[in-house]
């Protein structure tokens, strides 16, 4: 579903990615770990079609994102660290608005159902987003992806700033979506959350994948030591 083959991306002053190859299958959650500037966001931007690779091949659901932006916007959803919704709208109105922008028309009842499914309690559906916590906004962000019936979810630091309960909820929701067949790629710093959520983990350093492993093969402590070791080197 997501395929990067020897992808490199150079900017005027630096090389963001160098021969990056990875694959995320449908129903899989892949976590990219790495420090700031490692190339996590660049990878997401390449997958969203915002950037054109300097070399190699990027594929999302068999499409080349940069040359098929419209099709990519229909297939992929993006959830940033801070899901910035319109504060004067309710969660339900935000969901409705973003769906309309994406060309999706769903009845209110369906949207309410989606919000509930993504963990937002019904009493908050019609409350203004300005009164939402970060976790609640993340849930609306996921609901937008769900409503779009996005095949691929790209998350940039999704658990950053969430309290443990909200993080757990996020993990549960992502696992549920993956269980329904979604392909999920998340970029994160949070080793513990990555270990809990992802099926497969890749460690990025200076634009190259230095390690790739199954989450089930490694304990949280081992992952932390491995990550710190790579960062030190």
């Amino acid at each position: 579903m997501i395929q990067l083959s020897k992808v490199s991306k150079e900017f005027k002053t630096n090389i963001a990615l160098k021969d990056l190859s990875l694959e995320v299958k449908a129903g899989q959650i892949y976590a990219l770990l790495g420090s700031n500037g490692a190339g996590k966001t660049t990878t997401i931007n390449l997958l969203l079609g915002f950037l054109q690779p300097t070399g190699g091949e990027v594929k999302l659901d068999g499409l080349t994102p940069y040359s098929s932006k419209k099709a990519i916007s229909e297939r992929a959803a993006y959830i940033p660290e801070n899901v910035s919704l319109y504060p004067f709208l309710s969660g339900l109105e935000n969901l409705d608005y973003f769906c309309h922008l994406a060309g999706i028309k769903k009845p209110k009842a369906t949207l309410t159902e989606i919000l509930s499914k993504c963990g937002l309690e019904s009493e908050f559906h019609n409350q203004k987003v300005s009164e939402y916590s970060k976790g609640m906004r993340q849930k609306v962000g996921i609901a937008i992806a769900y409503a779009k019936e996005a095949k691929v979810l790209l998350l940039d630091e999704p658990a950053s700033g969430l309290d443990p309960a909200a993080s757990n909820e996020l993990t549960a929701i992502l696992k549920q979506l993956a269980g329904e067949g979604a392909t999920i790629l998340m970029a994160s710093h949070d080793l513990f959350r990555v270990r809990e959520t992802a099926d497969r983990i890749g460690i990025l350093k200076h634009g190259s994948l230095v390690e790739e492993l199954d989450a089930s093969d490694v304990s949280a402590n081992t992952l932390e030591n491995m990550y710190l070791q790579y960062m030190k080197n």
């Binding site: 969203l48 915002f50 932006k69 419209k70 916007s73 229909e74 992929a76 959803a77 993006y78 940033p80 801070n82 899901v83 910035s84 919704l85 319109y86 973003f98 922008l101 994406a102 060309g103 962000g141 937008i144």
Partner: peptide, 13 residues
Amino acid sequence: EQGRVRLLMVQGV
């Protein structure tokens, strides 16, 4: 300011 532009662009706007 709220970084919404990227989110909107992903929606195809």
